[in-house]
């Protein structure tokens, strides 16, 4: 095998199924450019602060990734996340008891799963468009939270949660850099979901449903049951994201998280997941989240007003998705196959 041939077979593997390689290269280039531009960028402190700010978006992005792979889109996950987390803290505070971190986690996940079940049941049973259903449930969940559960900001967390918010995995006091302990559960969840998507029948089923629902049904996947389980799982993962957000912020504010949906969806789509379903990877999603956080952080360091962040993420999305769309169009022209999706 000549070198050129070897390069040819190597290149697609490095690029990855969903352009993960390209994303990684962009991130590395961005890091190099920023390090040259600003001496304060290439430090442990920056690394830790980016990791810290990426924790909650990563968890939420993993939840959104599952929905997008299955061919849907979810905008209610942020409402579910804060609903579950705030309700848990609120009840613990009202009842003057502390069920311990495991109890809190289980309770929040249960709430998240119930809300996810509402989404899943409506979507799977009646085959309604996911965007519109989740837009509606977003309004419902948020309304119920603020009207019937509480709209007050809670500054005092249960002790078991408060203890976690100051726990660090690595603490370098000299440069005031701290890596929160919560990195561990986030990493565990990310790895479990990655394993589930690759190795389990359920994971493959989600890809199959996203690729072609009818084909998945005829192949014997229980589509309705899988979709309902999927949305319950998404709800539970979102609830964990909400809890981590509350712990990191050391307070529970019912107005939080809602409003960041689009940033998370943008990160997932940048990570190579196809909005039509059937494509996407955990690695790409995590890289997408890191890229968005990196850009936000870089803009801040370069002295660009925070007001530009929103426009920057939008621009990033246009460029990322635009390149994918153009290359898909070129590929379909090359193979002379009529692609009905593109029309």
């Amino acid at each position: 095998m000549t070198l050129a041939q070897r390069m040819k077979t190597l290149a697609p593997r490095l690029v990855g199924a969903n352009n993960e390689g390209v994303l990684a290269i962009i991130i590395v280039v961005l890091i190099i450019v920023m390090s040259l531009l600003s001496p304060s960028f290439f430090t442990v402190h920056t690394l830790f602060s980016i990791v810290r700010s990426a924790l909650v978006p990563s968890i939420l992005a993993i939840a959104v990734l599952l929905v997008i792979i299955s061919g849907g889109i979810d905008v209610s996950f942020a409402a579910i996340a804060i609903f579950a987390a705030y309700t848990t803290v609120h009840l613990a505070q009202q009842g003057q008891f502390d069920p311990g971190i495991i109890g809190i986690l289980l309770f929040a996940c249960a709430i998240g799963a119930v809300l996810g079940f509402v989404n899943g049941a409506v979507i799977a049973r009646f085959r309604l468009p996911t965007l519109i259903v989740t837009l509606a449930t977003q309004g419902i969940f948020r309304g119920i939270l603020l009207v019937y559960i509480g709209s007050r900001y809670i500054a005092q967390l249960p002790d078991s949660m408060a203890g976690l918010s100051t726990a660090n995995l690595i603490a370098i006091d000299s440069s005031r850099s701290y890596l929160p302990l919560l990195v561990v559960p986030v990493a565990v969840i990310v790895l479990i979901v990655a394993w589930m998507l690759r190795r389990t029948m359920f994971g493959r089923g989600i890809y199959a449903i996203g690729g072609d629902t009818e084909a998945a049904r005829r192949a014997g996947f229980p589509v309705v049951r899988f979709q309902i389980i999927l949305y319950m799982m998404v709800g539970a993962i979102a609830a964990i994201g909400g809890l981590i957000h509350v712990i990191l912020n050391r307070n529970a504010n019912p107005q939080d998280i809602v409003g960041t949906e689009l940033d998370v969806i943008a990160a997932v789509v940048l990570g190579g997941a196809s909005i039509f379903g059937g494509r996407g990877s955990v690695l790409g999603t995590v890289l997408g989240v890191v890229l968005v956080q990196l850009i936000n952080n870089s803009l801040l360091l370069m002295g660009v007003p925070t007001a530009w962040q929103r426009a920057a993420v939008g621009l990033l999305l246009v460029v990322g998705v635009g390149i994918q769309a153009l290359s898909a169009r070129r590929a379909s022209r090359r193979t002379f196959v009529l692609d009905t999706v593109e029309a």
Binding site: I73, L262, F276, A307, G314, L317, V321, G322
Partner: peptide
């Protein structure tokens, strides 16, 4: 360009709002 309407307008919403 051929971007799906939902993603294209999601992005432009962010840009216009930004």
């Amino acid at each position: 360009v051929g971007i799906t309407p939902i993603l294209a307008t999601l992005a432009t919403m962010q840009i216009f709002n930004g």
